[in-house]
Design a protein around this nucleic acid. Structure first.
Lengths: 212, 212
DNA sequence: CGTCCTCTCGTTGTGTACAAACTTGCGCTG
DNA sequence: CAGCGCAAGTTTGTACACAACGAGAGGACG
């Protein structure tokens, strides 16, 4: 059995990432405990972990609340991503196994499918696929320190939550980037791969900054 | 009154950073609780926070232990530092106030004093000064995301613990770098400052890698 | 009428007791 | 004699109860 703390942790994280718990929302321990059907103890632990991940902030004796990102914060996050993710991508390009490439390929293709303009377009379906893609890339890079540095910064609420703010052209670019990254990795060209990743993040930054 | 959890947190961190708790050492909750004269609850919280900082790792149902870094981990850490700290330094160079510069100047000078070869050399005194220097640089940079990304990676046990492994030439270089960084910042030359920081970290990496 | 103090209420912080899980060592069986 | 299974012991995970701190409302004093 997975521990109660662990379940509370993922449940809360999902709630925040999905937007059920709005940024700035006050998180009372008893309220959350009742909602999850557990005691306050695992809730406290979960909040503690979320705080470490940067998703919530705890004020001594005043409880926790979902972090609210200022435009400057968001910009800083993209700076960090620009510094680290291209490097991770380059590493991944030189270490990827056939299985890694197949998985990434599959994710990229599925994103192109659900993201294609038309009646079947499902922007919400992209979110988990995109998350998996970047996560897989990171594990493939096999650089624990790099992953650790990124993890506390990237999966912040706003960054990965929605693709609805993308205009059609930016969205098409973004999805094409994924496929191009895989292509570059297949070619074993670390420079190419990392450069596409730079473009990918730059594109995302432009969308996010504009939407504010 | 500062909370019991907070005290346990800093006490344990200091113990680990000082080396009292060796890497790989098993951290029993009851043992720590008795040693600190508190209950298990704050100890659990403290361990949780330390795990988030990357100083200890908790295995479900098996307790916590101080992380042990492999040479590859160490190398990865330096990669991250090389990606982020020069950038932070450049930012700091364009934002430093007169007070920032004075503080950094003071720290750099004191490090040169206590690190100067001779009977008065005190390598252990460098450690906190060095920590303060890098920390102050980070706050001056005023880039929360960048600080967050670094914090979970940098203050790992081995990295900042000792200057005893430095050979005289490397040590002299390292201490001179601090002063040069301040000089570059005073000149408002972000490029210069960040490039010295790159050298600074490269020098440290060489020392650490060699000592393994 | 404004400001400061105080009291109360709600929340978080801490301690302790109990339950569940993992480890380890012993005994049994092939 | 080796390997497997089981049980006891130790450790962590969870719940609950109490204590302490902070926030906000109300009243008294200037």
């Amino acid at each position: 059995m997975t521990t109660t703390t662990g379940r509370a942790h993922v449940a809360l994280r999902e709630s925040i990432l999905r937007g059920d718990l709005a940024p700035g929302a006050h998180l009372g321990e008893v309220e959350l405990a009742e909602r999850l059907g557990v005691s306050r103890t695992p809730v406290r632990e979960a909040l503690s972990r979320l705080a470490a991940e940067g998703l919530v902030e705890v004020l001594p004796h005043r409880g926790a609340r979902v972090v609210r990102l200022s435009p400057e914060d968001l910009d800083g996050i993209f700076d960090v991503r620009l510094s680290l993710e291209p490097r991770a991508t380059a590493r991944a390009a030189t270490r990827a196994t056939a299985e890694d490439l197949d998985v990434l390929d599959d994710l990229a293709r599925r994103m192109l499918e659900v993201g294609a303009p038309g009646p079947d377009q499902d922007l919400d379906a992209i979110v988990p696929l995109n998350r998996d893609f970047h996560a897989r890339l990171l594990t493939t890079a096999d650089a624990p320190a790099l992953s650790a540095a990124l993890s506390n910064v990237v999966h912040t609420p706003v960054v990965l939550r929605t693709f609805h703010t993308y205009d059609p052209a930016s969205l098409a670019r973004s999805l094409a980037h994924h496929a191009e990254i895989v292509a570059a990795m297949r070619a074993g060209d670390a420079d190419w791969a990392s450069s596409v990743m730079r473009s990918h993040i730059g594109n995302a930054r432009a969308v996010m900054v504009r939407s504010r």
